[in-house]
Write a protein that binds this DNA or RNA. Structure first.
Lengths: 208, 208
DNA sequence: TAGATTGTTAATCGATTAACAATC
DNA sequence: TAGATTGTTAATCGATTAACAATC
């Protein structure tokens, strides 16, 4: 891609995608940046600027075709292809993620679930058996694994991430409470739940 | 609080808190903004600016006392007090959150877990029985509930949020895939997992 | 054509970084 | 005191908003 697009823009794309999906479900055929801006509580200017980072998806005097724009944003985000995901760490959160993401209509498919605890071996979560971590290299060899979700204790996160990268998995959805940003050749997306909760806590406290 | 502090700053505080906690565990007594900046891959200038939104916690020529700064940031975030949390929606994710957050040393305590599915009634998750949603008003009356985590289908999220606010709960940790930002008198913190996954997906796609 | 609305340039605003005087 | 490092002001950078010519 030619010019670097800021993460601020990228963070907004899934929200546009969601609103357009809802409009689509409601049978709305076209929408102007102005109408969309009112629904989403953002400026029309921002919507047009954001979209024009990727191309001209609208038409003067008409607005945007909902189905077309929805599909285009889907393409940009890469959700119109299937992405195979494995989950490392089959605790509560790992099992929830394994069961949860499948529900989304977007194209992420959980194909494996791993842990180190021998007591969990073979336990079924939905239609997936929990596998032991030493089966991971073979599994990756035999399956097209694109993303690994790390739902394991922070102590094991970094070494596991390094192992994943060496096995050829270059995208990590990190739920462990550590930063993995010094690992080369990998895209990291963090979900730090306790950070999120602290932010909430601050905003409550401030309000008083 | 006098001047409005931007959410960009607030978002960084939990990360400072985490790094200071680790330094504390490692027995480090003091640290300069410069040393901390190297560890965290941010600028020293940003650290000093961020902290000075809340007061002068350092000392010229010395730096920052780790224990003191850790504690002060904890106070700002409100994690040195206990916050009672209930979880609405006892599916996979709700059960995971109910079991998970308790593990954190920060002061969030899950005291109730609710669902509408009668089959789940009374089922124990850790030491909490799943209660039915119609027991919620009494529960809130008899307990000091500060935060509600919404881990339920998007279709029910808004009406549940409205009900919570009317019952006196003014902080929502929202895992449902909807925006609740048009509800008055409530602080919302969103965790949109599928948005996060899409962002990851974009960053993979871009890389290629 | 006239009206509507985009795509895009220009202006503004806010956040980040740099610089340095204050001070421990 | 001299050296180190903060707190804070000033400069820069980037993101958001406004404005409007292009055009459907």
């Amino acid at each position: 891609m030619d010019k670097q697009i800021s993460q601020a823009v990228i963070r907004r794309l899934p929200r546009y995608y969601r609103y357009l999906g809802e409009l689509l479900d409601d049978g709305v055929e076209r929408i102007s940046s102005n109408d969309l801006s009112k629904r989403m509580h953002v400026t029309a200017s921002q919507i047009r600027q954001d979209l024009n980072n990727f191309g001209g998806f609208g038409q003067q005097g008409y607005g945007y075709n909902v189905a077309y724009l929805h599909d285009e944003i889907g393409n940009i985000l890469g959700v119109n292809e299937t992405h195979n995901v494995i989950v490392i760490g089959a605790g509560n959160l790992g099992q929830a993620i394994a069961g949860y993401v499948k529900f989304e209509r977007v194209g992420f498919k959980i194909i494996g679930l791993f842990d180190t605890n021998p007591e969990l071996k073979g336990k079924m979560v939905r239609d997936l058996p929990i596998q032991m971590l030493d089966e991971l290299p073979d599994f990756i060899k035999n399956n097209d694994v694109e993303i690994a979700a790390l739902t394991l204790p922070k102590a094991n996160a970094k070494s596991t991430a390094l192992k994943l990268v060496s096995l050829g998995v270059h995208a990590i959805w990190n739920f462990a409470h550590v930063d993995l940003d010094d690992i080369p050749d990998v895209v990291i997306e963090n979900v730090h739940l306790s950070d999120s909760l602290m932010q909430l806590s601050y905003n409550i406290t401030k309000q008083k």
